[in-house]
């Protein structure tokens, strides 16, 4: 592989006479002592001679018009595509919050619904759990029976925590466990 010389990049411009004067002198001095660059310069000049010997093919006005028209169509298509892509990018941030708000509202409704179902005054949660979870503390301030043949009483149990308010009827035998309701 040929090792490239740092002056090689200036050779084309040197051949075309396009280098500034000071750089031109430097490149010229370098070529005088660098065989590789001199050889490369010869190649470039040979190529230039070959290109100059060939005539540029003439292009008719119709061909140019056709080319311009085709190019315009292609550019318009690219332009439309890029505008569409830009519109999609712009649309997202505009619509996203609208959907976001809808989702937020729906989520809030779900939370409220669960709240009403579980802990609301008509909630099913506390009732479904029965008496096990809730404290059943009950204080009886007064108790009476105004009907003949009934005797009211009450008692409380600690385990399970429960108060029983009972009216004994002359029609019913028995009582509480031991001597109350149902005892025989």
């Amino acid at each position: 592989m040929r090792r490239s010389c740092k002056f090689e990049r200036y050779l084309t411009a040197f051949a075309d006479g396009e280098l500034p004067e000071k750089l031109n002198r430097k490149v010229e001095a370098h070529i005088a002592r660098c065989g590789a660059c001199a050889s490369e310069l010869d190649s470039i000049r040979a190529s230039d001679r070959i290109l100059k010997s060939h005539r540029v093919p003439a292009v008719s006005d119709d061909t140019w018009a056709q080319f311009r028209h085709g190019l315009k169509l292609e550019l318009d298509a690219v332009d439309r595509e890029s505008r569409r892509a830009a519109k999609v990018r712009e649309t997202r941030p505009v619509h996203a919050p609208v959907w976001g708000r809808a989702y937020a509202l729906a989520a809030a409704c779900v939370v409220v619904l669960f709240a009403v179902l579980i802990v609301g005054p008509f909630g099913v949660g506390p009732w479904r759990g029965g008496t096990a979870a809730a404290s059943n503390e009950c204080i009886v301030d007064s108790i009476e029976s105004l009907a003949a043949g009934y005797t009211p009483m009450f008692f409380s149990s600690e385990d399970p925590e429960m108060t029983v308010i009972w009216v004994f009827s002359e029609e019913v035998e028995g009582g509480i466990r031991g001597e109350g309701p149902g005892a025989k």
Partner: peptide, 20 residues
């Protein structure tokens, strides 16, 4: 009036009544 009672029941609690 088979039974009339005034009670203070823990909020969320249960009391058993019966007999008739």
């Amino acid at each position: 009036v088979v039974l009339r009672t005034k009670i203070r029941l823990k909020n969320g609690g249960t009391v058993l009544l019966g007999g008739p």
